[in-house]
Amino acid sequence: MFLKLMLWIIRVLILLLVVVSILPEMPSGQWWIRLWEFPRLQLTFVLAVVLLLLIFHAWLKRPRKEHAVLLVLILALAGWQLSHIVPFTAVWPNEVPTADAQTLENQSTFKVLTANVTYKNDSYSEVVELIQREDPDLLLLIEIDSEWEEGLAPLNERYEYRVGEVRGEGLGIVLWSRFPFLEQEVKYLVSERRPSLFVTLDIPGIGPIRYVGTHPVPPGLKDRITHNDETTERRDSRVRDAELMLVARHVQQDSDNRWIVTGDFNDVAWSDTTKLFADLSDLKDPRHGRRLLSTYHAERPFWRYPIDHLFVSDGFHLVDLDRIRLKGSDHFAITTTLTAARKDQAQPEASEDEHQKAQELVEEGTEDASEHNVSD
């Protein structure tokens, strides 16, 4: 009886794992479908547990044909999940080259820190102390409300330049910089509630660099869909996807310049949307060939995903990449030290199908934002 029950548990678990592995491949923006793009590492762990159960059952019952079929399914599913994760390990080629000693002797370096502080967090002084210790040249902080603005006031003495918007409900975003702004603009790409920052920086020894800080809406977030506070609905991924595609278009249209795009994308590094964003913009992920750097949830190690990102165009080499705990926040901060390198001036080479897919995402996201009263 025990062995029969174990076999049924194994069968049911494998069936469920097949379903949740297939769901993200469906062309849908529903949050409960897109959700399954996130836990690929966790699903791989579950598959390893199921594999051990299967081996134990085969050892007790003696191997038979069904064991072989289930084994093939488990290995195929594990291979599929791991294929998304392996590019973020040392076995994969680097997308952003590592700066060599000669480059560092001849070029200036600068440090970027990106962090979602979590607006319900009140560890203002501790965050200020961390920032002062890390001493970034560019500092993007997300979910800045009026309380956080007051708590971060000491940064205004440390940084001469600042742009952004302070808003409640986790919607604020502010950039502090040691470098002067040649251009600066707060854009509302899809939703009037979600600002993104577009800045041209003048970095001594490097020249002008285009910079974007963004924080698209997370799928699954409960959002009001009418003016009645009791009427809520979980957001799907369409508005987020549209915003990322529009950022990619901005980069693509000015690909001769160097670009840095960073922020809390609310999307994992291996998702189809993030990969399409990278293909359209021809931006590179410095985690490729190095490590995963999962940033959320900081307090729950098993449920942790890489959703805070920094992408760069060619024309940069990586000096350092790290993840830092931010007191009181459910996100880790990421720090990236970069130096300039020769830019090849190559144009993005996204396919027509990718451009068509991006256009569909923009249209669907804009329509979705309008329908749910978040576009104005």
Score class of each variant (00 low, 15 high):
Lys4Glu: 13
Met6Tyr: 04
Val20Pro: 04
Met26Gln: 10
Gly29Ala: 12
Gln30Leu: 13
Ile33Trp: 01
Ile33Glu: 06
Arg34Phe: 09
Glu37Cys: 10
Phe38Thr: 00
Leu43Asn: 09
Val46Cys: 12
Val46Phe: 06
Val50His: 07
His57Met: 04
Lys65Ala: 14
Ala68Cys: 10
Leu70Tyr: 08
Leu71Ala: 13
Leu73Glu: 11
Leu77Glu: 07
Ala78Arg: 04
Gln81Met: 11
Val86Glu: 01
Pro87Trp: 01
Phe88Gly: 04
Phe88Ile: 03
Thr89Phe: 06
Pro93Ala: 08
Asn94Ser: 13
Glu95Phe: 12
Thr98Phe: 08
Gln102Trp: 01
Leu104Met: 14
Asn106Tyr: 12
Leu113Met: 13
Lys120Ile: 01
Asn121Ala: 09
Ser123Glu: 14
Glu126Cys: 08
Glu129Gln: 13
Gln132Val: 12
Gln132His: 11
Arg133Tyr: 11
Pro136Trp: 04
Ile144Ala: 05
Ser146Cys: 09
Ser146Thr: 13
Glu147Lys: 11
Ala153Lys: 15
Leu155Val: 09
Glu165Tyr: 07
Glu165Ile: 10
Arg167Val: 00
Gly168Met: 12
Gly172Asp: 04
Leu175Gln: 01
Ser177Met: 02
Phe181Leu: 12
Glu185Met: 01
Val190Gly: 04
Ser191Thr: 08
Ser196His: 08
Asp202Pro: 03
Ile203Ser: 08
Ile203Gln: 05
Pro204Ile: 01
Ile206Met: 12
Gly207Glu: 03
Arg210Cys: 03
Gly213Ala: 08
His215Met: 07
Pro218Phe: 00
Arg224Ser: 07
His227Trp: 14
Asn228Phe: 05
Val239Leu: 05
Leu244Val: 03
Leu246Asp: 07
Val247Glu: 04
Phe265Tyr: 10
Ser271Leu: 03
Thr274Ala: 10
Lys275Ser: 11
Phe277Tyr: 10
Ala278Ser: 14
Leu280Pro: 06
Ser281Arg: 01
Leu283Gly: 03
Asp285Met: 02
His288Lys: 14
Arg291Glu: 15
Leu293Met: 05
Ala298Leu: 15
Ala298Gln: 15
Glu299Trp: 11
Arg304Pro: 07
Ile307Val: 15
Leu310Arg: 00
Val312His: 03
Ser313Phe: 00
Ser313Lys: 04
Gly315Arg: 00
Arg325Gln: 13
Leu326Arg: 11
Leu326Cys: 09
Asp330Ala: 05
Ala333Cys: 12
Ala333His: 05
Ile334Gln: 03
Ile334Ser: 08
Gln345Arg: 14
Gln347Thr: 15
Glu349Pro: 02
His355Glu: 13
Ala358Trp: 09
Ala358Tyr: 05
Glu363Phe: 10
Ser370Met: 02
His372Val: 07
Asn373Ile: 01
Val374His: 11
